[in-house]
Design a protein around this nucleic acid. Structure first.
Lengths: 127, 127
DNA sequence: CCGAATCCACAACGATACTG
DNA sequence: CAGTATCGTTGTGGATTCGG
């Protein structure tokens, strides 16, 4: 549960609501079309910007940068700029990022496992 | 991985790309601000519409209905209408829904565990 | 109490062009 | 190659209202 059922001292309560609102913010950052896919795409490797763009079908240059910035800001990915020419920028998951990736993988597994259920559910949804 | 690295026969490939595009669709349905929170809120209980709206802070009437419809369409929740007056509509998770909830719980745990990491990462992001 | 439809503000996104 | 900025379009989500 993200929302907590807690009733403690004023101080504890204030801390928890602050933490809770941050949690919601993180959740919002992750609950978008691309963030989880990017995390999955980086995996345990080191990925170049252009590799990610090629790998994640349908993502635009802009969205990739934007999401990578957000992930970097939250400390989920490390960004390494090689001062060469042409530039070479590499992204890797941090420890929190790798931890999150495990649960993302769980969601991917879930998707594949229940694809059939979902298809039949959809067909029956004309009732 | 949602995107597959598979190279099989033409038929298999066609099936996989179709399955893959469906997977992406499911993913999109889930990767929004509310879907995962709703799944978490229903939990193992049976929840009324108004209970959910009260419980999920900040969600609007419209978004709740809309997301519940999508979840129902994908077979993640069951919708039970009691023909009383006033109406009483209850939602419960289906088996796939409960399975997904496990991984959602994983994400919630992750959020709480790494809240500290994220806060410090954000503070260091002025460099 | 619950759901659907309308209206509208605003954020998200893609395309493009420009910089280092 | 990678990033930023701008612009026009699309879509998302909230408030409201009406209907069962």
């Amino acid at each position: 549960m993200v929302t907590k059922p807690f009733t403690g001292s004023p101080k504890d309560e204030a801390d928890l609501t602050r933490a809770d609102s941050l949690a919601r913010e993180i959740f919002s950052d992750l609950a978008n079309k691309w963030a989880l896919l990017i995390i999955d795409a980086i995996g345990n490797d080191t990925r170049r910007f252009s590799e990610l763009r090629d790998e994640i079908e349908g993502i635009s240059h802009k969205m990739l940068t934007q999401n990578l910035r957000t992930l970097e800001r939250n400390g989920l990915v490390d960004r390494c700029v090689h001062p060469t020419v042409p530039p070479r920028v590499e992204y890797t998951l941090t420890e929190p990022g790798r931890a999150l990736r495990v649960t993302v993988a769980g969601m991917c597994d879930w998707t594949h496992r229940y694809l059939g259920h979902i298809e039949t559910a959809r067909r029956g949804f004309g009732a």
